Amino acid sequence: MPDEKPSNESWKHEPPYKIQPAGEFGHVYWRGRCQCGRVEYWLNMEKPLDAKFCHCRGCQVLHGAPFQWAAIFQKSAMTFRTSFDSLNFYNSAEKLRQHKPPCKVSCAHCHSPIMDEGRNTVLLFPEAIDFGHGAGQGKGHEREVRERRGLFAPSCHIFYSQRVIDIDDGKPKWSGMNDESERI
């Protein structure tokens, strides 16, 4: 049954789904949210473990764009500020609409992609993170936003063999996963 609920729901009490008070979670470096604001999360790491541009066909279809920008964090570095009831889950390998990692996580209301969840890590989409954006706040503020966003700078391109546009940015380009495939 494709939409059957899993019997083990311990994940609801583990990071990133376990809602933690600020004192328990630690210093909040970043706040992210979906388009409608019903899903909010915090990150307690200043920078991701890595960040990449992914050109795989799945990311192209999911995001409706030529590639996606993903930042990788340990699950324990993230906590949702809202209940998991505000989330939709999709395991694309098995075509299941349930929480079964690896899975895609989105807002149940506005359908904004939030992350791809793996067994130990999450791939967040930095576009949802508040880097301090705001129009008309001056050049100093714009520079600060660029510096903050720079902490999430991608190290490489993955699945570049499936690209729909060429990107001439000097970053390493891999035909599949980085360090596991041919470098293009």
Rank of each mutant, 00 (worst) to 15 (best):
D3P: 02
K5Y: 11
S7M: 11
N8R: 14
N8I: 11
E9A: 13
E9H: 10
W11P: 04
K12D: 04
E14W: 02
P16G: 02
Y17P: 00
K18I: 08
I19H: 01
Q20T: 06
Q20Y: 01
P21V: 12
A22L: 10
A22M: 06
A22S: 09
F25S: 07
V28N: 04
V28E: 06
Y29M: 05
Y29G: 03
R31K: 12
G32I: 09
C34E: 05
Q35K: 06
R38M: 03
E40T: 05
Y41T: 00
Y41M: 03
W42L: 07
L43W: 04
L43M: 10
M45E: 15
M45L: 09
M45Q: 13
K47S: 13
P48K: 01
D50R: 05
D50Q: 11
D50P: 00
F53H: 11
C54N: 02
C59P: 02
V61I: 15
V61W: 03
L62I: 11
L62T: 15
A65C: 11
A65W: 09
Q68L: 12
Q68R: 11
I72E: 10
F73A: 03
A77R: 09
T79V: 08
F80L: 15
R81M: 12
T82D: 15
S83R: 09
S83I: 09
D85L: 07
S86N: 15
S86R: 11
N88C: 02
A93F: 15
E94V: 09
L96S: 05
Q98S: 13
H99M: 13
H99L: 06
K100R: 14
P101R: 05
P102K: 04
K104A: 06
K104F: 10
V105P: 08
C107Y: 00
A108F: 00
H109E: 12
C110G: 07
I114R: 01
I114A: 03
D116K: 13
R119C: 14
R119H: 15
L123D: 14
L124K: 03
A128Q: 06
F131V: 02
G132P: 01
G134V: 11
G136F: 07
Q137P: 01
G138N: 08
G140P: 07
E142M: 10
E142C: 06
R143M: 11
V145F: 03
E147I: 08
E147W: 03
R148A: 07
R149L: 11
